[in-house]
Write a protein that binds this DNA or RNA. Structure first.
Lengths: 102, 102
DNA sequence: CTTTTATTTAGATATTTGTCTAAATATATA
DNA sequence: TATATATTTAGACAAATATCTAAATAAAAG
């Protein structure tokens, strides 16, 4: 289920949240280990996690006491595609016919 | 001169502004002709133009009474690149806990 | 010079947002 | 069970945001 583009772009608009996503680039991490990299409270981080989750930009899994966060690359890719759609060039094909100049 | 990523993503976070950019995909337009497509006041649109200009997502040129807006594709491309940077180049790797096949 | 058209600016307001501390929930372990 | 650890939720608050109406600015037309 694709989230609303609105929630995705809103989520991406915050630098802390973009940094969280970036920190998940190399693999999933627990909430706590992510939080260690940021100078704000755990509660604030949890708020950001909630925004990212609502946008489906991250997925979560409980492992014992920990919650493990991982990047949902598909949604990031969809956001990328939306930006490319603004450009009107490149990226995913806008039509299947393929009568466009290569 | 590249704008701060922050101002770019904030600008992209609003659906009206994304629609404005999209409407400029096919070529430049005057403020008024853009405004005709949106059900909000000219003043509000002007506010959005200001945000887009501050992010350098659009450029302006005065032509007589009109202000002509055009898309600055370079900055949209830079935002696209930032999203792709979140994805990384090598694709997904491993989960926390490291119990994945090597 | 005055009026009309196009756009922006000013000021007000309601909503959203990011942050905090304190408390609550969930799990693990002694 | 009791205690410690990990994370989220609740409630509060200042700052930012999107919108509006009314007024100001800029250029063109009469």
């Amino acid at each position: 289920m694709s989230p609303r583009p609105q929630s995705v772009f809103k989520a991406l608009a915050d630098p802390t949240r973009r940094a969280i996503l970036k920190s998940l680039q190399g693999g999933s991490m627990t909430a706590g280990s992510i939080a260690d990299a940021f100078p704000i409270s755990r509660a604030s981080l949890s708020h950001h996690f909630g925004v990212l989750k609502a946008a489906d930009l991250v997925r979560t899994e409980r492992r014992g006491q920990h919650i493990v966060y991982s990047l949902n690359a598909t949604v990031v890719e969809e956001a990328t595609a939306m930006l490319m759609d603004i450009l009107g060039t490149g990226g995913p094909r806008r039509r299947a016919g393929g009568d466009e100049d290569p």
